[in-house]
Write a protein that binds this DNA or RNA. Structure first.
Lengths: 145, 145
DNA sequence: ATTCTATTTGATATTGACTATCATTTCGCG
DNA sequence: CGCGAAATGATAGTCAATATCAAATAGAAT
């Protein structure tokens, strides 16, 4: 089982890209966090370790991390892209509480299967999908009268 | 059965908003088009009828049309919000071809039911959802080697 | 109809996320 | 080392969408 660092380095050499301290640092910082994170949030954290790092570099490295298969983009529709771990975190969809913003990762094989069938019934070859379920979590259900 | 115009006017008076020629014009132009449309595209069309209309007004009116229940926002993830008819166009999801951009409206009751169950299994009350199925349509399947 | 005032409009500036540009730095090969 | 290509960081630019604000106007009161 390869480590994330190995996968990232393999991707860099395969693409003839260079191994830089910034890239390693940003990747490591991303990997340490478990939750969905935005580029700006990651930038803020990274600056604490190395204040000289540029914002553009964080955006650039996040893109590489996605291409290397270690991260996945998540779009909750609020205009900001978030990133989540993709390594050892198989595909899933998201349940999002509109009250408190809490998210839960969900996966349902029946839904996945039906999605493929629906696409095929229109002659489409399904390559991927996005599904966001919005609602109110247990805590927030009671609050808004 | 109320007309869209009646529904819109009802909404305006319920909210103590004024009935203006711009609002009527933009609504009418939106209603004439059947396909998903962006605010900028609608602005371009509307300008042909009345070049004095401001871009901001189109954005503002589209928001009202959504609030009145006559339109729905659709986000295909390309950074631009699109609007589709909501009146007599019941909820559906979208199948999007990554090759040519073609979209198909789809609806599957089993998926809808499973979504509700999944949400409930986590204690969530499902209020709405977004589901986008991305793939290649019949035409585009053969093209990419 | 005329007046009045809060709403609406259109022009413009601003925001916020993200990308492009570009001079300077640095990686990594010889 | 020393070189050339690639990466970085600072900055400017893009683009959709929103905020601002003076001027125009809807619509109720007169």
């Amino acid at each position: 089982m390869k480590t994330e660092r190995e996968i990232f380095n393999d991707y860099l050499s395969k693409m003839n890209l260079r191994d830089t301290p910034q890239r390693e640092m940003i990747l490591d910082t991303f990997l340490k966090r478990e939750e969905h994170i935005t580029a700006e949030q990651l930038y803020d954290i990274v600056k604490k370790t190395d204040p000289s790092i540029g914002q553009a570099t964080v955006y650039r490295v996040l893109k590489l991390v996605v291409e290397a298969g270690l991260a996945r983009e998540v779009d909750f529709g609020d205009g900001v892209m978030r990133y989540e771990h993709a390594y050892n975190h198989p595909h899933h969809d998201h349940l999002v509480c509109k009250g408190c913003g809490k998210t839960v990762e969900v996966r349902d094989d029946i839904i996945e299967e039906m999605q493929k069938r629906v696409a095929e019934s229109f002659g489409f070859l399904l390559t991927d999908h996005e599904m966001y379920l919005y609602g109110l979590c247990g805590n927030c259900r009671g609050k808004n009268k």
